[in-house]
């Protein structure tokens, strides 16, 4: 356990090192901030002045050290595009993305697990077959297509739900939330369904296959041989084993949900970090890109660690060796 945790930590540090180095390299060499920031008709002197102001003339390692130090202080630089601190920009956008991802995860888990169990227990039922077929359509449909179709049907066609923005928000301790207003909820429906659909199919398929594995295992055979009730075997014995990998996968899925949020936010013009990032990519706004990379890297590392800890608490095989 201790060994597993150390190797995890080492890996986390490694990932963060690689990520900061990438972010720095991007920041320093890729964007050519001078060209982006100066006017079309700027003179050489004006450009050199700007480069000095941005600190681009110092040695590389000094710049990297300064970069890391600033990042650790929470100073992620200033956006080339709108001249505001990147940290502020991210902080503004974070609540929107987190609410979207949270809603999608809840949706995906609350539907995915029961459906997966159903497909494993009654593989020949009409419902299970339909769910299976639909799940294949689900993994084959890219998020943006789902979004466009939902907009076409529910916004353009039926005029039922808003197709962009997050509606009215209310500040709760400085966190602007859309979960307290009717328009906020209405705005959340389409984006969160869009984002959840892809994850839903993944979780459903995982639960199904894990459940099938568990049901064909020796210990379930042995439980049957002791005449235990079918319900008890399915929902207490097998389900617990089947849900173990779901912990890991859900954790990792939250990571990719944030990535997929880029697409969803683009389709629905949802004012989250993904939209910020995509706008940064098209404007070569390197500080924002780099900061986003740093943030996502940190988030993934944190989620991975959290998943490991939860797993260790839940799985007796790991828990015991921790003692």
């Amino acid at each position: 356990m201790l060994k597993a945790l150390t190797s995890r930590l080492t890996q986390a540090v490694l990932v963060m090192l690689v990520v900061t180095a990438c972010a720095f390299l991007m920041f320093r060499y890729v964007g050519d901030p001078v060209r982006v920031l100066s006017r079309e008709d700027a003179t050489q002197e004006e450009k050199a002045e700007l480069a000095r102001a941005l600190g681009l003339d110092r040695p590389v390692l000094v710049q990297y050290g300064g970069f890391v130090a600033r990042v650790l202080r929470g100073d992620l630089g200033v956006s080339f595009r709108n001249q505001r601190p990147v940290a502020t920009l991210l902080a503004e956008r974070l609540p929107a993305t987190l609410e979207l991802v949270f809603a999608a995860t809840v949706l995906a888990l609350s539907l995915g697990i029961p459906l997966g169990v159903l497909c494993a227990l009654k593989p020949d039922s009409v419902l299970a077959r339909a769910v299976q077929a639909l799940s294949l359509v689900g993994v084959s449909t890219p998020t943006f297509v789902t979004g466009i179709v939902l907009i076409l049907v529910f916004s353009v066609g039926l005029g039922l739900l808003p197709s962009f923005g997050r509606g009215q928000t209310v500040d709760v301790f400085g966190w602007p939330t859309g979960l307290l207003t009717a328009s906020g909820w209405r705005s959340l429906v389409l984006p969160s369904v869009t984002l959840a659909l892809y994850q839903l199919t993944l979780i459903m398929r995982l639960v199904r296959s894990e459940m099938i594995d568990a049901l064909s295992s020796d210990y379930v055979r042995y439980a049957r041989a002791r005449g235990l009730p079918e319900r008890y075997i399915n929902f207490r014995l097998a389900l617990r084993n089947a849900l173990m990998p779901v912990i890991t996968v859900t954790g990792l899925q939250i990571g990719s949900l944030i990535a997929f949020a880029i697409v969803t936010e683009t389709v629905f013009q949802w004012p989250g970090m993904g939209l910020l990032f995509i706008q940064a990519v098209s404007f070569a706004d390197i500080p924002v890109m780099a900061a986003y990379l740093l943030f996502v890297g940190l988030l993934f590392v944190a989620i991975n660690m959290l998943v490991d800890v939860i797993y260790a608490l839940v799985d007796p095989r790991l828990r015991a060796s921790a003692r």
Binding site: S217, D218, Y219, V220, Y222, A225, R226, R240, N241
Partner: peptide, 20 residues
């Protein structure tokens, strides 16, 4: 089964559920 008939299998390593 279980009450009137008891069963033991070949492999004790996989007959027991690891999570209970």
């Amino acid at each position: 089964l279980g009450r009137d008939i008891g069963v033991i299998f070949q492999d004790p390593m996989t007959s027991l559920n690891p999570l209970f």
